[in-house]
Amino acid sequence: MSKQVFCRKYQKEMDALDFAPFPGAKGEALFNSVSKQAWQEWLKHQTTLINEKRLNVFEPETKVFLEEQREKFFNNDDAVEKAEGWTPEA
């Protein structure tokens, strides 16, 4: 049986990540509060933001923007950025 975590995005027990996505306290916090499903959805959303907004991931401003968006995404904040012309999947 895989490890379970109370996912802050879905507010229920779900399969946990296999390992922390980042080193340090931020990675450990995500590991303990985000499900594998929510993390995969974030990676897809992050990729869309990077591609559609033509972000340079090596710029410090982009890293800050993506960190803010990640927190909003996992907290189900309505202020999460969408890519230009983005429409939700049906």
Rank of each mutant, 00 (worst) to 15 (best):
M1V: 11
S2Y: 05
K3T: 13
K3P: 03
K3G: 02
C7S: 08
C7G: 05
C7K: 09
K9H: 01
Y10P: 03
Y10H: 12
Y10I: 04
Y10L: 08
Q11M: 06
Q11T: 06
K12C: 09
K12R: 11
E13Y: 09
E13N: 10
E13L: 13
D15E: 15
A16P: 12
A16S: 15
L17N: 03
L17P: 03
D18T: 14
D18Q: 15
F19H: 03
A20K: 02
P21V: 13
P21A: 12
P21R: 15
P21K: 13
F22S: 11
F22G: 07
F22N: 15
G24N: 02
G24I: 13
A25H: 08
K26G: 02
K26V: 09
K26E: 08
G27F: 14
E28K: 06
E28N: 02
E28H: 07
A29H: 11
A29Y: 14
A29I: 12
F31A: 04
F31N: 04
F31R: 10
N32T: 10
N32P: 02
N32V: 03
S33W: 02
S33F: 01
S33Q: 11
V34D: 07
S35M: 05
K36I: 05
K36M: 10
Q37R: 04
Q37E: 11
A38F: 10
W39K: 01
W39T: 03
Q40Y: 11
Q40W: 02
Q40R: 10
W42M: 06
W42E: 05
W42K: 02
L43Y: 01
L43P: 01
K44G: 05
K44H: 03
K44P: 02
H45Y: 01
T47L: 13
T47W: 00
T47M: 12
T48V: 09
T48D: 11
I50E: 01
I50Y: 00
I50F: 00
N51V: 10
E52G: 01
E52S: 00
E52V: 00
K53W: 01
K53F: 00
R54H: 13
L55D: 01
N56H: 13
N56S: 15
N56G: 12
V57M: 14
F58E: 12
F58M: 08
E59L: 14
E59A: 14
E59D: 13
E59M: 12
E61H: 10
T62F: 14
T62Q: 12
T62K: 15
T62G: 11
K63Q: 15
K63T: 14
K63R: 15
V64R: 12
V64I: 14
F65P: 06
L66T: 01
E67W: 13
E67S: 15
E67P: 04
R70L: 07
R70T: 00
E71I: 12
F73C: 04
F74R: 06
F74D: 05
N75K: 13
N76Q: 08
N76D: 09
N76V: 06
D77G: 06
D77F: 06
D77Q: 08
D77V: 07
D78R: 12
D78P: 03
D78W: 04
D78K: 14
D78M: 10
A79L: 11
A79M: 11
A79C: 07
A79S: 15
V80F: 06
V80N: 06
V80K: 09
E81A: 13
E81F: 12
K82R: 07
K82P: 00
K82W: 04
K82Y: 06
A83K: 01
A83P: 02
W86A: 04
T87C: 04
T87S: 07
E89G: 06
